[in-house]
Design a binder for these strands. Sequence first.
DNA 1: GGTTACGTTGACGTTAACGTCAACATAAAT
DNA 2: ATTTATGTTGACGTTAACGTCAACGTAACC
Lengths: 127, 127
Amino acid sequence: MNDKFTVTQLCREFGVTPRALRFYEAKGLLHPAREGTRRRFGQRDKARLSLILRGKRFGFSLAEIGELLDLYHTDNTQVSQLTRTLEVAGRRLDDMRRQRDELAIAIEELQEQMDVVADLLTKKKTD
Amino acid sequence: MNDKFTVTQLCREFGVTPRALRFYEAKGLLHPAREGTRRRFGQRDKARLSLILRGKRFGFSLAEIGELLDLYHTDNTQVSQLTRTLEVAGRRLDDMRRQRDELAIAIEELQEQMDVVADLLTKKKTD
DNA sequence: GGTTACGTTGACGTTAACGTCAACATAAAT
DNA sequence: ATTTATGTTGACGTTAACGTCAACGTAACC
């Protein structure tokens, strides 16, 4: 079985705690199957989990991430729902582009400021 | 007086609440002067505030932002403190660069996935 | 058949970043 | 002198995203 994973396997692979996985499931972001009482995660859940974690790194809330995730399992989704999701995704995409541009500026500025301070430091040392 | 601002002026200009400003001050991120009992914010505080808000948009915590802010008022700072701050800033800069790269990838992926879904939508509509 | 190993569900605790509300101070305007 | 606007300090409430037990189930191994 290459595509069935247990809780601890996912935890190791993604560096999260079981509690977090349960939390994501409770929020409807993951839908692991059940073997008896235990969770079995499939490839879909793995893909979703990495999207979740990536979204978090960008500062998105789990609620926002949840809206986006629907974009990736459009199987039996209604047209109306898809349209709505596309709108949300479009806005999120704009956010990300703005964030990217702003980030580029901030990186440059921080680099410059670091240079200034580094200079100041060498001078202070030669006192 | 061109460089003295009241609470509400800053709030309007930056779109934050008075509570937030007080919170930042309590955390040591802002150091407004006092006229009697009231706060007077100067240019330095404005600069700091925009750095704070920018940091927040990148997902940094106020604690992390606080460490970085020292880089911008290095006036009477000790050499040891400056060195330490430079280290912190260096790490943060690496974080930002990683985030920038990852963000670029995520933007592309999201764009592609949106195209896929948009296609799927037009086909669904012609059913 | 006992003990690990791994899993489960509550239930409550925690931290960050404020929001909200009460009670009071002060300064300007009427 | 009293509204009105603007400010202040506590103190407590709130939300998101988990952490941390406790108590229990079950499957496998010795």
